[in-house]
């Protein structure tokens, strides 16, 4: 009985953790690699989720429709980065912190626009597999968790391969390391950063669709996820893409265990505690290079 509970808690935790990793993946690029503390990223994800519900209502599959949406988000991300860098990049590095207030304002505005457009109520998607489950011995995995959770390893692997083997991907990692090194090699670091920020925004479309399959969400759902998303990125170690998956799963499993054996009402505190503990005792994270 207790073993069954444990097995189900762990499997749920792993699935939830994968979804957390998907949420945080864009942040691992914008914050982890570009050092832009985009606290509006979770709101981007929620926007992606709402976009998915709109197309789902027309009969499209939310995950499939999120692929073309990702292109739109890519463009929007680039435009937003232009706006951001016009204001801040030229003012110098000490203003990274002041940039937080800009992202804060932007996330408020997006949230409110969502509320005014869709109302403050929860929205959900309608897909065939919701309600069905995969049963493996004592472990029951509902498809509404399993399918979106599978998105994360796919995204993480794709992004990791992209950063490791493509020309642009290597350039992005080079920017993360040292901007000047790149300008010597003749690549425009401005373009590379725009491109990377666009990719970060694009991931929000896909992970948003994944999020809304898991369960209904309201326009303020991003707020709960800010702490989690940053906890994943920092616990993984700044800029570590595969680490994102491991850190997400670690947080997801811990939350599920706290929920199963403690009280679910304490689950929201898990990510925050892990975030603080990482900052206080191992700021380089699990897989990050010492900084």
């Amino acid at each position: 009985m207790i073993l069954e509970l444990l097995a189900n808690a762990i499997s749920t935790g792993v699935l939830l953790g994968c979804i957390y990793a998907a949420l945080a993946l864009g942040l691992a690029v914008s914050f982890g690699l570009l050092h832009i503390p985009n606290i509006a990223h979770p709101v981007f994800v929620v926007t992606g989720a709402f976009a998915a519900t709109v197309f789902n209502a027309m009969g499209f599959d939310p995950l499939l429709v999120s692929l073309p949406l990702a292109l739109v988000f890519y463009g929007a991300g680039i435009a937003f980065f232009e706006f951001y860098s016009r204001i801040y990049e030229k003012r110098g590095e000490s203003d990274t912190m002041q940039a937080l207030t800009l992202f804060f304002g932007v996330s408020l505005v997006i949230e409110t626009v969502l509320v005014m457009q869709f109302g403050a109520d929860q929205r959900s998607t309608d897909v065939d597999y919701v309600g069905q489950s995969l049963t493996l011995g004592p472990v029951v995995m509902p498809y509404r968790l399993l399918i979106p959770a599978l998105v994360a390893p796919v995204m993480v692997t794709a992004l990791w391969l992209y950063l490791k083997y493509t020309y642009a991907g290597i350039a992005i990692r080079a920017v993360a390391h040292d901007e000047r090194a790149l300008s010597v090699s003749g690549i425009d670091p401005g373009w590379i950063k725009r491109h990377a920020f666009g990719i970060a925004a694009a991931t929000a479309a896909i992970s948003g669709a994944a999020l809304v399959i898991v369960g209904p969400i309201d326009p303020f759902a991003g707020r709960m996820q800010i702490g989690r998303a940053f906890a994943v990125v920092i616990l993984a170690g700044m800029g570590s893409i595969p680490g994102t998956l491991a850190a997400g799963i670690l947080i997801g499993v811990t939350e599920a265990l706290v929920g199963a054996f403690g009280s679910p009402s304490w689950a929201p505190a898990v990510a925050f505690t892990m975030l603080l503990a990482t900052l206080a005792f191992k700021p380089s994270g699990l897989f990050g290079a010492a900084r």
């Binding site: 937080l100 709960m224 702490g227 929201p268 505190a269 990510a271 925050f272 505690t273 975030l275």
Partner: peptide
């Protein structure tokens, strides 16, 4: 500095949970 700011975002969730 940025980490301080991020931690304060999560602090509200934490305090409310408590």
């Amino acid at each position: 500095g940025v980490y301080f700011a991020i931690a304060t975002i999560a602090l509200v969730v934490m305090a409310e949970t408590v």
